[in-house]
């Protein structure tokens, strides 16, 4: 599973995308969030961290599939 990174999450990881190994078997947004917190503790310090699935905001219960476009959305600051 490949995850698009933006803003501060891109800097925290040090890459534009993050690959989650398939054996992690992440099924939901909540599981992905837990995995991110374990591997990148600095993400827990952000004001918020939304996760988008196929370019829509997703809630924690939503299922994720490997062919979907997943992105991390740290606190936005446009305008």
């Amino acid at each position: 599973m490949e995850i698009l990174l933006f803003g501060i999450t891109r800097e925290l990881v040090g890459q534009n995308t993050l690959t989650v190994p398939p054996e992690e078997n992440l099924q939901t947004v909540a599981q992905l969030r837990e995995w991110l917190h374990a591997h990148f503790p600095a993400m827990q310090k952000l004001s918020s961290l939304a996760i988008a699935v196929d370019s829509e905001y997703a809630d924690d219960a939503q299922e994720i599939k490997p062919n979907q476009e997943i992105a991390l959305i740290p606190p936005v600051s446009g305008g």
């Binding site: 933006f6 803003g7 501060i8 988008a52 992105a71 936005v76 446009g78 305008g79």
Partner: peptide, 11 residues
């Protein structure tokens, strides 16, 4: 609303 929800970031 743009400032609240639209995924754009500024450094």
């Amino acid at each position: 609303e743009l400032k609240k929800t639209v995924p754009i970031w500024k450094k």
